[in-house]
């Protein structure tokens, strides 16, 4: 079929319109929930037969594109805390460099499959579960007309007891930079290992750990994702030559448009409903990825492409 396109770096043939549609779908989710969408896209690409190393690397630029597309809308419509984003990103840069090295070593000993599946199962499972129970509680409370519980202590010692305090005027906070930097490092490592932007961890962490105001969380997380995925993308191309520009372009054509539509649609939903839907998606992907660890494989051997991945 003429619509199939041979990818020069991945060295496989894929259906062009299907990839554009996929990019659009994931881009929509990205704009809607303010996440990169990598956690959805990586497993799908691998399922389509694209070597994991190429999928992870090419995806980074797709995520950068759709995040740029929606962060501009968020900057106009709501708010981005650029200072907080910068602090998170400085940790993210360190984390992704570390993560790329750790992942190289894991691939060398042939355990990339295990680490990737386990990370998906644990992180997506835990975060999806927590988000789902929290958002359902909120939805049920508001349906019953109960009063929402009192907002928790706004000055947890973790944030206010540590040194190097910095003012974040946009978020109306004056906290130590250590927790956001640590969060950035952690998310950066995960993103290199799992092939994700890290938004699905960043967004809840910013709300529940950093206690940032909800209105700036999404835009700020997207801003930090752009910085780390841009870096990851260049690093992967430079060190591993695994970025497939044709694959990335196909994905981002749909991705940037989908992200715009998603960002527009997000105002029509209530925040807790959005969180409940996102939680379900996150949980489903995590369980699906983890399932392979428990099922008896039909083929007991596995070929590892190229340098493994």
């Amino acid at each position: 079929m003429a619509l199939d396109i041979y990818l020069p770096i991945a060295e496989v043939s894929v259906n062009g319109p299907l990839l554009v549609a996929l990019g659009a779908g994931v881009g929509f989710i990205s704009g809607l929930f303010g996440i990169g969408g990598g956690f959805l896209m990586t497993p799908i690409l691998v399922f389509l037969g694209i070597p994991p190393a190429v999928a992870v690397a090419s995806l980074a630029s797709h995520v950068a594109a759709s995040s740029t597309s929606s962060v501009i809308s968020y900057t106009r419509a709501r708010a981005v805390d650029f200072r907080m984003g910068g602090v998170l990103a400085s940790g993210g840069v360190v984390g992704s460099i570390l993560g790329v090295e750790v992942f190289r070593w894991i691939r060398l000993i042939g355990q990339a499959d295990l680490v990737v599946s386990l990370s998906y199962l644990i992180f997506l499972g835990v975060i999806g579960g927590l988000m789902l129970s929290e958002s359902l509680t909120t939805i049920i409370r508001s349906r019953r007309g109960d009063a929402q519980p009192q907002i928790r202590d706004r000055r947890p010692p973790l944030l206010y007891g540590l040194p190097f305090k910095v003012k974040f005027p946009k978020s109306r906070m004056y906290i130590s930079v250590i927790p956001p930097i640590a969060l950035g490092v952690f998310v950066g490592m995960l993103s290199a290992i799992m092939g994700v932007g890290g938004g699905f961890i960043l967004v809840p962490a910013m709300i529940y750990l950093l206690r940032m105001p909800a209105n700036v969380v999404v835009g700020t997380s997207l801003f930090q994702i752009i910085i780390t995925t841009t870096l990851t993308s260049v690093l992967q191309a430079g060190r591993n030559q695994t970025v497939d520009i044709v694959l990335a372009t196909l994905l981002l054509i749909g991705g940037v448009i989908g992200a715009q539509l998603g960002a527009k649609a997000s105002s029509r939903f209530r925040a807790e409903e959005l969180r409940a839907i996102l939680a379900l998606i996150v949980l489903a992907v995590g369980l699906r990825m983890g399932l392979g660890l428990f099922l008896t494989p039909t083929e007991p051997f596995i070929l590892m492409t190229g340098s493994g991945g």
């Binding site: 995040s67 841009t230 191309a237 030559q241 520009i245 940037v256």
Partner: peptide, 20 residues
Amino acid sequence: PWTYGLVSVSIALAAGWAAS
């Protein structure tokens, strides 16, 4: 590889900006 990486990421960022 490094120029290639910069070019591909620039395309991505430009596309994101153009769409918005």
